[in-house]
C-alpha cells in the first residue's frame, strides 16, 4: 500500500488521464477491493468476479471521486454497489457458505469456527442496507458520519440501521447460545 501522498498523487494523475498512474492505482488497491468483495459474498469465485467488475467501473468512475471522502471508503462503496448489481443481474444471492473455506483453514478451535460461521451467515441474511452499514462501520471501522456522507443520508439513519442489525443478530444469538461457548 503506497503512502498517503503517493495515493493522492496517483489518483490525481489518473483523473487527468495518466494510464500508468491508473494501472498503479488499481494494482495497489486490488487487494483492498478483493477483501471487501470477499466480505460481502464469502467465496473466492464471486469475489474475484466482483472485484474485476469494480476495477472496470473504477476506470470510468475515477473522475467522480471527489476528495471529500477517503479513497478507500469510497472504494468500499463502489465494491458493495458492484456486488449488489452483480448479484441482481445474476438473480442470486451471496452464498456465504464459502466463508468457511478460510475460516476452517485459519482457525484452530472448531467451536469458534462454527460460531463465526453462524454469525457471518446471519449477517449475510440482513437486508442490504443494514449489511453494508454494519460491514462498513464494524468491519472497516468507519464512523457513522463517514458512512452517512458516502451514501448521502443522515448520520442518524446509519446509526439506526446498525442498531437494527445488531438487534436482529442479538436476538438470534442470545437464543442460540449453544453455538457459542
Amino acid at each position: 500500500m503506497p503512502a498517503d501522498i503517493d495515493k493522492t498523487e496517483l489518483i490525481n494523475r489518473a483523473k487527468s488521464g495518466d494510464a500508468d498512474a491508473f494501472e498503479a492505482l488499481v494494482n495497489a488497491y486490488y487487494e483492498v477491493m478483493f477483501k471487501m468483495a470477499y466480505k460481502w459474498c464469502g467465496n473466492r469465485r464471486d469475489a474475484e468476479d466482483i472485484t474485476q467488475e469494480a476495477c472496470i467501473k473504477l476506470a470510468r468512475g475515477i473522475n467522480s471521486y471527489g476528495c471529500s471522502a477517503k479513497f478507500t471508503s469510497w472504494l468500499y462503496v463502489l465494491v458493495i454497489n458492484t456486488a449488489k448489481d452483480w448479484y441482481k443481474s445474476q438473480n442470486r444471492y451471496p452464498e456465504g457458505a464459502g466463508l468457511l473455506e478460510n475460516i476452517v483453514a485459519n482457525s484452530d478451535n472448531s467451536d469458534e469456527k462454527l460460531y463465526t460461521y453462524q454469525v457471518l451467515k446471519e449477517v449475510n441474511k440482513l437486508p442490504d442496507m443494514e449489511k453494508e452499514s454494519l460491514i462498513l462501520v464494524m468491519g472497516q471501522g468507519l464512523s457513522h458520519k463517514e458512512v452517512a456522507d458516502l451514501y448521502g443520508v443522515k448520520e442518524s439513519t446509519i446509526s439506526w440501521r446498525i442498531h437494527e442489525a445488531r438487534k436482529k443478530l442479538n436476538a438470534i444469538f442470545s437464543k442460540e447460545e449453544r453455538y457459542g461457548k
Binding site: F22, V26, Y30
Partner: peptide, 10 residues
Amino acid sequence: RAVNLAVSEF
C-alpha cells in the same frame, strides 16, 4: 486480469 481490463477500459 482485472488490472488489464480496467486499464484498457480506462
